[in-house]
Amino acid sequence: MTSTTTERRTPPATSRRPGKSVSLAARRRRTAVIAWLFAAPFVLSFGVFGLVPLLSSFGMAFTDLRVNDIRTPFAVDFVGLGNFAEVLSDTTFLRALRNTLGFVVVGVPLSLFSALVLAVMLNSLGRRAATFFRVGYYTPVVTTIVAVAVVWRIMYQPNGLINSLLADIGIDGPNWLGDTRTALPALTLMAVWRSIGSSMVIFLAGLQAIPSDVKEAAMMDGASTVQRFFRITIPMMMPTILLNAILTTTGFMQFFDEPFVMTNGGPLQSTTSIALYVFNQFQWGNYSVGAAGAYVLFAIISIFAIIQFRFFRQRT
């Protein structure tokens, strides 16, 4: 960087800046103007492309906005809770809700548990070995979901890699993505595979923050490895587990890329997610119905976060 040379060139006290003669109020006003200048680019872009859509999405969910109204988004009628009623009585949405919840309820604990076990294992290794495994296990996290979903779609073919590996140990694998019973579990497995690494790294940071004297004291008192894990590691990790639980749940709730690429919601809607439902409503031009569906998802995510927060609060 350029800093080392330029800092020295900073002019001494002889600059044009007004000295002590300026009143405090004037200086404060100056600071406020400067601060808003610093904030302006963010405030503008975030306000227009973040805040305006966020606020209008809420309004939109209560109107009858459709694709034809796209040029006149304000000339629409209010329908009250009509969209929510429509969404919540739509069997496709209820199917999507069930799929999403099943995906979350199975996938998130599986992902968190594997990640925690991995982190504990890595934490007991030497530095270099831990780094090696950490990088390796983290790799799926950085890769593009669409691309890995395409690869897994091939692996899940009836005569693909997974079934041929299963055949080697004498198991006749199913048509993973073509069977309503196995499609969602297949997607869940892939999502877990891709998410373990990120929770693992956060767990590792949490584990390293546990003061070693606590563990040593327990060791002196004769606590076994298992005892130390459940009596010291887990309780001290509660805040980290909470953070990971909320982040992973929020991510899993919105799963879209996987079903879009691998099954397009099929077979027979067995893998349609809420996000995919919203997308489909959007594609069909039912904008306000889609907005309502998105808000239902938002509400569910918030409820889950609150429950998790309460649950972990009680245990710490």
């Binding site: 492309f49 859509p53 966020l54 939109m60 709730m253 997308f279 889609g290 907005a291 998105a294 938002f298």
Partner: peptide, 11 residues
């Protein structure tokens, strides 16, 4: 969640 603002953003 990003999906909430998706449609209004598109509009």
């Amino acid at each position: 969640p990003g999906i909430v603002t998706l449609i209004p953003q598109f509009v």
